[in-house]
Amino acid sequence: MKNYIPYISFALIVLLPGCKKEEAPKPKVIYENSSKPKAEAATDTAQIEVADLPISMEGTNYLIHPIGVMSGSSKGVKSLDAGQGFTVSNYGEYQITGYLKNLKFQEIGTDSIYALTDKAVLIQTATYLKNFADKTKQQLMVYSLADMDTNKDGKLDSSDIESLYMSTISGQKFTKLSADYQELIDWKIIESKNLLYFRTIEDASKNGEFSSNDVVHYFYLSLNEKEWKPIEFFPLKN
């Protein structure tokens, strides 16, 4: 056994320098001089835009074209090497998911195609409110997306704050529902009352991270109104 001791010791010496400490998670928000972070994100010239084949939501008269990228440095990009081909989105249960730069809309029977927004965004989910449409004949879409480079790393990705938006099925009236710099927690529809409820969390401590010590906000809005104005309520107050 003595003959093996020097080799074991040498192996430990060789391996130790290769050990690295795990990197701490990056904050969602980085503040400069106690002011709000800038919203601009740098353009990645290495990205190649790709449009998936259009999606038709049942009972609607519009085609939706998901727009994403197939290469580049931004988080969430799906590469050809990963076996994803040219696909940049997934679809199921009236919801489009992915890391999308935009959605484009086309009324069936026309050649005109137009974008949901002209701003830099990263759309993670786009949900058609099918049950609500069946009941009220109003056809609406709800989106979760990043619209600001809140962690100031020069790009929009899933590490930035997630916000809640809504539009009509045609992509018109694209409206932000959650407040700036508040992270979306979740949302749901109360179909019997035609109401949309959602929760957000605010970085009250201004440490750039969200935790149980921060402030949770509760909102609802009527889907019957022409203008979508969330109303804050306080279920935890006596």
Rank of each mutant, 00 (worst) to 15 (best):
L164A: 00
S167D: 05
D157Y: 08
M141A: 04
G85T: 08
D160W: 08
M148I: 07
A82G: 15
I108M: 12
V142S: 03
G154F: 03
Y91N: 01
Q139W: 01
A115K: 14
N90D: 12
L80K: 13
S167F: 06
I161H: 10
N131H: 13
L156M: 08
K152F: 00
G83N: 03
N102S: 03
Q95H: 02
Q84C: 02
K137P: 01
Q139L: 02
Q138A: 05
N151D: 13
Q139R: 05
S112P: 04
K155T: 08
D157G: 09
L140P: 05
D147Q: 03
K101M: 04
Q138M: 04
D160E: 13
S144Y: 01
T110C: 10
I96A: 00
M141F: 06
T110W: 14
S159Y: 12
D118T: 15
A115P: 15
D149Q: 08
S89P: 09
D147I: 02
T117E: 11
Y128C: 06
S158R: 12
V88Y: 10
E93P: 02
N90C: 02
T117K: 06
M166T: 09
Q84P: 00
G98H: 10
A115T: 13
T87E: 12
F132V: 07
G98S: 08
T150C: 10
M148D: 13
D147S: 12
S159N: 12
Q138C: 00
L122A: 13
T110V: 08
I113V: 15
D147A: 08
K152L: 08
A133W: 11
G154M: 01
L100D: 06
K101V: 00
K155G: 01
T136E: 10
Y91K: 00
T110S: 15
T125W: 02
L100S: 04
N102F: 02
Y94V: 01
F86S: 10
I108D: 04
I123M: 02
D134N: 14
V121I: 15
K152H: 09
E93M: 05
I96F: 03
A146V: 15
G92T: 09
A82P: 07
N131K: 15
T127L: 11
T97I: 05
N131Q: 14
D149P: 06
T136F: 06
D81H: 05
V121F: 04
G154R: 01
T150R: 10
E162C: 09
Q95P: 03
Y114S: 14
L100F: 07
F132A: 07
T125I: 04
T87R: 15
D160V: 11
L129N: 12
L116R: 05
S144R: 10
G109T: 06
T110K: 15
F86R: 09
A115C: 05
D134A: 07
A120P: 13
T127P: 01
S159Q: 11
M166R: 02
Y143S: 00
L156S: 07
T97W: 03
Y94H: 14
